[in-house]
Amino acid sequence: MNRAAKPVVLPFLRLRVTVLALLGGVFILTAFTAACIGAVSVPVVSLFDGSLNTQQEAVLFSIRLPRVLLASVVGAALAVSGAALQGLFRNPLADPGLIGIASGAALAVAIMIVWAGPLTGTLGLYGLSVAAFIGGLLACLLIFRLARQMETFSVTYMLLAGIAINALSGAGTGFLTYLSDDTQLRALTFWTMGSLGAALWPTLSVAATLVLPATLLLIRNAQKLNILLLGEDEARYLGINSEHLKRSVTICVALAVGAAVATSGIIGFVGLVVPHMIRLTIGPDHRLLIPASALLGATLLLVADTLARTIVAPAEMPVGILTSLIGGPFFLWLLVKQYAGRFGL
């Protein structure tokens, strides 16, 4: 039998192009739709034939477009972070919200708001983002420190550590809420519930300049993350410096989550749901999982945010409530499925 004639190599590249093109197409369609729907409706045709009136133009360019793009960037950041964290912890239940990275970031933002006063403008937003980055990073390091005590990092242990960190950060944020005055209180409430309502061009540029490089770096580390799933020793035997990899992935995740939290507060479950949907359909390979999660995360948060600002219009619902409403049951379903032994807890 001619062995070379029977290729075993998966047609990976073609799959990758097809999936990403498909998800990209859906994302662009969603973005156009989201840009047109709202309190002031903008007909799709007039986007192209230039028949927008001044009001439509103002709404589109200074309110809706930055919001649509911010929702996309934040959605992508959360989904990509979830995918990377699940790889890092070798655990499909990791999520920036569940294990406390987002709440660590939010606590840092709360500290900034209450003690450093209102920060506005691009520089202020970067300040908040850096604070959120540091808060998220500290939460990450705490989890890693706890993980090192154990040989393997079980789901139970990770989630319990997440509960503890969430409780601590929640207590900190609560205490700051108690201390805060009226303006600060309004700002804090916004962060703890998660909303994209503050989207302006500066917000978008801050988020994008942090999230995009972090995502690209994660994509570059995708194959290494695959191998890390075999175990840290195994990755080392295959020539990968797993300490170095863990550090760089953690920093990327903290950056992406920090930017997301600083600009839109805590939006839960996107990081859990999206990578799972991708894994269920096209498998766990991070080279495809990470870019596909970015696109699907962007699309889903965009849909959620569009719903959040239209279903109770003219009022607005915090989008975090909506994602938790969808994500909570999904998480429970995953838990049940996991304990049924599918992934061998």
């Binding site: 655990n91 695959n226 894994r279 498998g283 766990p284 390979d285």
Partner: peptide
């Protein structure tokens, strides 16, 4: 060596 993720044998 536990692998929790649904990789195929070939992968």
């Amino acid at each position: 060596s536990f692998v929790n993720f649904p990789f195929s044998v070939l992968e």
